[in-house]
């Protein structure tokens, strides 16, 4: 099953919702239209009980070359820019999605491209992926959560190294810093990511919703409260912790 949006491809099979960024001519630069399409697709993913996991990929040569600056540079006022940020809170939708998210990045994974990936659960990178966080070198700061998610994954010092210098880095270094957890040759990337997404879609969904909440909220709590949070989530899922019978 698939639905058609101008800037993304949305497909559903084997319990996996597959969203692919689809502005290949612009290296999937994240545009206002893409934001709106993405927000709609994420809403569908959250609501659709047949969907167990979300896979995000990019069409063409790059996963995502960052925000389309010809569009995001032009808010008429700060008040409007701030309103718009929270009217369509795509980053909040990703963070709060009750289903696990797998992201496969390749080619270029720049700025908001990397920020989208960092809001997911499992990140897989093609070995030849080029990463960079160029915002500060353009007079901006990351605005898709990067200033919060980068240090959570790589630590504050590595995050600032990447942000201050805007330097390019490889999939190997991204893996070493904890920004991605797997790499694969480019031709194997989609198969690997798809396999992870299908496996996750087979897990009873309540378990994964609880796991996302445990990891997301637990990281922000003092350890004693985090352990109590875990206990409550474990208790709530006691009746779910079995894979469905096979055969």
């Amino acid at each position: 099953m698939s639905a058609s949006f101008p800037t993304i491809i949305y497909e559903k099979s084997c319990g996996v919702a597959h969203v692919s960024l689809n502005r290949p001519q612009q290296l999937n630069a994240y545009s206002v239209a893409m934001r709106d399409d993405f927000a709609q697709a994420l809403h569908a993913v959250a609501e659709d009980s047949e969907v167990g996991s979300l896979l995000i990929t990019g069409q063409g040569r790059a996963f995502c070359a960052g925000a389309d600056l010809s569009e995001f540079g032009t808010a008429p006022s700060q008040v409007i820019a701030r309103n718009v940020r929270w009217q369509r809170d795509v980053w909040g939708q990703l963070l709060e999605l009750p289903k696990p998210i797998v992201v496969a990045v390749h080619g270029y994974c720049i700025g908001s491209g990397l920020e989208i990936a960092l809001l997911a659960d499992v990140r897989v990178a093609a070995e030849d992926t080029v990463f960079s966080m160029p915002e500060v070198r353009l007079g901006m700061v990351p605005a898709a959560g990067g200033s919060q998610t980068l240090p959570r994954h790589a630590g504050p010092s590595r995050a600032l190294d990447l942000l201050f210098t805007g330097r390019r880095f490889s999939a190997f270094e991204a893996m070493r810093m904890g920004l991605v957890s797997r790499t694969a040759p480019a031709q194997d990337l989609l198969g690997l990511a798809w396999g992870v997404a299908v496996r996750l879609a087979e897990v009873p969904s309540g378990l994964l919703t609880a796991m996302r909440a445990a990891l997301r909220d637990g990281a922000d709590l003092p350890i004693t409260e985090a352990l109590q949070h875990e206990r409550r989530l474990a208790a709530a899922t006691l009746n779910l912790d079995r894979l469905p019978e096979t055969g």
């Binding site: 915002e135 500060v136 353009l138 700061v141 990351p142 200033s147 240090p151 600032l160 201050f164």
Partner: peptide, 13 residues
């Protein structure tokens, strides 16, 4: 790099 953006990035991180 842009100095104010650098300071803000530092603050946010």
């Amino acid at each position: 790099a842009a100095p104010v953006a650098g300071r803000y990035a530092k603050e946010a991180v």
